[in-house]
Amino acid sequence: MCIILVVMMHSTLGVGEAMGGEGFMHHIVAFAKPFRIPDFFLLSGLFVGRVVDRDWRLFADRRIVHFAYFYLLWLVLQSAVKYGQITDGAGPGAFLAHLAHGLVEPYSTLWFIYLLAVFSVAVKLLRRVPGPLLLAGAALLQLAPIHTGSTLIDEFCVCFVYFVGGYLFADRIFALADAVRARIGLALLGLAAWAALEGALVFTPSGFPSHPTLASLPGVSLVLGAAGALAIVAAAALLTRAGGPVTAALRACGERSIVIYLAFFLPMAGLRTALVRSGVIEDVGVVSLLVTLVAVAVPLGIERLVRHTPARFLFRRPAALHLVGEERPRPAPGLASARPT
C-alpha cells in the first residue's frame, strides 16, 4: 500500500502537470499526503531493531551497504536516461559532476533509499539515548521550521521522527496489528473515524499561505503522519486476515517494494508521454490511474524476467558485495510477509 501510494503521487502529479488539469486521483493523492511518507519510514523503522545491536559489520551490510548499492546503481541508471537533460551539451564532465553531487545530495526519487541508510546509522549511534528523549528530539526537528534547501537535511528533520517511532514502538505496533485482527468491528470503526478526520483536515483551508490546509499546520501534520501510519498497519492487518487476491497482490508489491521504487520512473514517464501526446484519453483521472497501474506492474514484470539471469543485479545485490552471508527473508510478526524495504 505504501509503495503504491508513492507511485500514485508521482504519476498523478506528473499527468496533471502534463495535461494542465486535475482528476479524481488528485483527491486521493491529497488525502494520502499527510501519511504517505511517514508510514513508509515508520514501517522501515520497525525492522531496524533486528540489527541495531549487532556488530557494525553485520549492521553495515544490512542497513548501509544494502541501500548504498541500490542507490549508487540506480543513480547512474536514472541519470543515464536523462543524460541530455543533465549535461545540456556540456559533455561527460558535467555528467560526472552530477554523479558526484548525488553522493552528498540525494537524487530525484532515490532520496528515500539514501535517507534509510542515514536514519539507520543515526539510530545505531543514538541507541543508548533514552527512548523518550530520542523521540522528543526527533519530534522537535519535525516541528522546527528548517528549510535549508538541502533534501538530505530537510527531509531528515521532517521524517526522522517516524523512523524513530517505528524503532521504539515496534513491539506495540505489532501488538496493534494483532489486536486489530482480534477486534475487526472496532478496528473498522476506528479506521472510518480516522478517514473522516483525515479528510476534513486535508481539504479544509487554514488561511495561512505557508500551510494551506489544516492538515499541513505544524503539530497537526506530525499527529496525522503518525495516525495515518498506524491506520496503514491496521488496514494491512485486516487484509492479511481477510486474504484473497487483493491481499495477495498487495503482498507481492510489498515483498518487492524496492523493485517498484527503483524502476517505476521509466514506465511512468513513457506511458504518460504516450497517452498525453496521443490524446486518446482526455480524462486526467483515468490517465493518472492507468499510468499508476503500469508504473507498478512493469517493474514487477522486469524483475521476474531478469530474476534468473545475469541482469538480476538490478534488483538483487550480488553475493560479492555482501560483507556477511545473505539474509534469508523472514515474515514480520503481525504484518505477515510485508517487508517495506
Rank of each mutant, 00 (worst) to 15 (best):
C2E: 04
L5E: 12
V7E: 09
M8W: 05
H10T: 00
E22D: 01
M25L: 14
F31Q: 05
K33V: 08
D39T: 15
F41H: 07
L42T: 07
L43S: 06
G45L: 13
G45C: 10
G45S: 13
L46D: 02
V52I: 15
D53I: 10
D53A: 07
D55G: 08
D55A: 04
W56R: 08
R57E: 12
D61R: 09
R62H: 06
V65P: 02
F67C: 01
W74G: 03
V76A: 15
S79K: 12
K82T: 11
Y83N: 00
Y83C: 01
I86D: 08
A94G: 12
A97D: 11
H98I: 05
H101I: 12
H101K: 11
G102Q: 03
L103Q: 09
V104L: 11
Y107E: 14
T109M: 09
W111I: 04
W111Y: 15
I113G: 13
L115V: 01
L115N: 00
A122Y: 01
R127A: 05
P132F: 06
L133E: 08
L140M: 10
L141Y: 11
E155R: 08
V158G: 00
F163P: 00
V164Q: 08
G166Y: 01
Y167W: 14
A170T: 14
A170V: 09
R172H: 14
F174L: 15
L176V: 06
A177I: 06
A182S: 13
L186S: 12
L188P: 01
W194T: 01
W194Y: 15
L197I: 09
T204V: 03
T204P: 13
G207H: 07
S210E: 15
H211Q: 14
L214I: 00
P218Q: 08
V220Y: 10
S221V: 10
L222T: 03
G225R: 03
I232W: 09
A234D: 04
R241V: 00
G244Q: 10
G244I: 04
P245V: 15
R251N: 15
R251L: 15
C253D: 03
G254Y: 09
S257N: 05
I260C: 03
I260A: 08
I260S: 14
F264E: 12
F265Y: 13
A269Y: 05
R272H: 01
T273F: 06
G279F: 09
V280G: 02
I281F: 05
I281P: 02
V286W: 05
S288V: 13
L289E: 05
A295R: 06
P299S: 05
L300Q: 13
G301F: 09
I302R: 05
L305C: 11
E326D: 12
P329Q: 03
P329V: 12
A332F: 11
